[in-house]
Design a protein around this nucleic acid. Structure first.
Lengths: 149, 149
DNA sequence: TATATTAGTTTGTGTCACGTACTAAATCTC
DNA sequence: GAGATTTAGTACGTGACACAAACTAATATA
């Protein structure tokens, strides 16, 4: 029974989760970042600038990301009503469906992954992760976002 | 106080963790995948083939990854003593130091992140994550790997 | 109004990942 | 043991992704 430190454990867990998400996204021909984009846009219509901040990317990276997403019919650029320099990025219905598909597959992965734990542990883990995220978001002024749509 | 599902929570947590790891890696001019490579190689000297499996990559992807890593003095290709077709990928001392540097920074990030939780919760979380990983590894025949070096 | 700032794109560079096609070495089959 | 097959790894071409720097247009500020 190997001892796993918190740090290593969380790192490994994050790779496991990202791997699952990536595989599910690939089933729908989506990359991880595009899937994350779908999640972020599910309940937002940010400007490019805001999107860059939400995703932690440079604004020039977002241009390319949205170019590709728009070309594939996942998002549209809507001119901002208040600032003629900027546009709002809006999810299409098609993308919303795609996102839901990825989320469903991913959910079953996570459920399977957690299936090895007894019920009580599972509930505890959910509560702890939730508490952690809320506290972290509060401390960093980051608002919580849905990553999977 | 938003309610976060287990699935969304774990996805968000994984993005948070990967983000932290990526930023720490970038401080040392390392990409996420290279950092992961460092972690995987810390206690292994696999063939290219084995490495591909460990990282979940195509073998042709591994060629490029190791090319770049070798060019930067992070790894060396040592001819296999038993099979003249294959080589073993071995970490250099320099890479080992780099990996330790990333791990230190990352550890402080995680510590800070967990700092918002009371002691008991933190201990519980560690135990749960550890149990989850061990169970998962056992179920999937995957041996646990250190991701941060 | 003149200047500075901001939003977004363009261009060029590098990493990363894949599939296909290839070479050389091992393994198998007869 | 010679010939066919499999295996290990690389080469090449393509595309997504990310960044920095330079640029344009619009807004803010002085």
């Amino acid at each position: 029974m190997p001892a796993i430190s918190t740090v290593d454990g969380l790192a490994q867990l994050s790779f496991l989760i990202q791997g699952a998400l990536d595989r599910r996204a690939a089933e729908h021909d989506l990359s991880l970042i595009q899937t994350r984009l779908l999640g972020v846009l599910r309940d937002r219509r940010p400007t490019m600038q805001e999107l860059a901040k939400l995703l932690g990317l440079d604004k020039s990276s977002v241009t390319g990301l949205i170019d590709r997403a728009e070309r594939r019919g996942l998002v549209t650029r809507v001119p901002s009503p208040t600032d003629r320099r900027s546009s709002l990025v809006v999810l299409t219905d098609r993308a919303r469906e795609l996102g839901a598909g990825v989320a469903a597959g991913f959910e079953s992965d996570v459920t399977g992954m957690l299936g090895v734990l007894p019920d009580q542990d599972r509930a505890d883990l959910t509560a702890l992760v939730s508490r952690l995220l809320v506290a972290y978001a509060k401390a960093h002024g980051v608002d919580l976002f849905d990553t999977t749509g």
